[in-house]
Design a protein around this nucleic acid. Structure first.
Length: 208
DNA sequence: TGCCAGGCCGGGT
DNA sequence: ACCCGGCATGGC
């Protein structure tokens, strides 16, 4: 039995980002950068209540008008710009149409997303996987912490190396990548906390 | 109360 | 090619 099966059995499905459709997930991917998800939900709700949670509305809104709506998500000025740059790109490249965007080849689309200012590897992969249902494994601070603490990867591993660690050893299955990443976050939240040098007392060894 | 949360950019070495 | 400061709110 692999790690994934053990984690799934121990914690159950995490139901990550069922969301209200791919566009909401895409917006959430930017808003959640280095930010607690609870705060992101408040910002999403503000956008919904203002009728601004559509590609067209966000394309037309100014950063000045957008920033206060997403205030609870933190870094609201910079995130307003990042959201705008992503939406501008979406319209220029794919006519504001998510179906067109996700019809693109995965590798090409990932490179295109990374070229947008404010979209780094984790945000790009989150959009590909959780909004587009494309098999691109997401790496985040939890993933790194859990794996490095249990010596499954070197301390100095890069994002792309950790991503490859999973993708080279798993079938290219979006549903699997989705659930696996969510389970690793769950483990990280529950046991593998920051500023705790080792995992001697945590039951993770049993699963990993 | 300080630390943390589903990062990324830009400027300096 | 790395390293670091800045960006900011809300919950425990």
């Amino acid at each position: 039995m692999g790690y994934y099966d053990k984690l799934l059995k121990a914690f159950g499905p995490q139901h990550w980002w069922p969301g209200d459709g791919p566009f909401e997930v895409l917006v959430g991917a930017v808003l959640t950068q280095n930010t607690n998800w609870g705060n992101v939900e408040k910002a999403i709700n503000n956008l919904k209540a203002a009728g601004k949670l559509t590609p067209q509305a966000l394309h037309e809104i100014s950063p000045k008008e957008l920033a206060p709506l997403i205030r609870p998500a933190g870094y609201f000025n910079i995130k307003a710009k990042r959201l705008k740059s992503l939406i501008n790109w979406l319209f220029e490249r794919y006519h504001g149409n998510l179906d067109d965007m996700f019809s693109q080849n995965l590798g090409t689309l990932r490179e295109e997303l990374l070229s947008v200012k404010g979209i780094g590897p984790e945000t790009a992969d989150s959009i590909l996987l959780y909004a587009g249902n494309m098999p691109s494994f997401v790496v985040d601070a939890y993933t790194y912490r859990v794996l490095s603490r249990h010596h499954l990867i070197p301390e100095d591993s890069t994002y792309e190396e950790i991503k490859a660690f999973f993708e080279d050893n798993l079938p290219k299955d979006a549903a699997l990548y989705n659930e696996y990443h969510a389970l690793l976050v769950r483990v990280g939240k529950t046991y593998c906390k920051p500023r705790e040098p080792a995992c001697g007392a945590c039951p993770l060894g049993e699963f990993l």
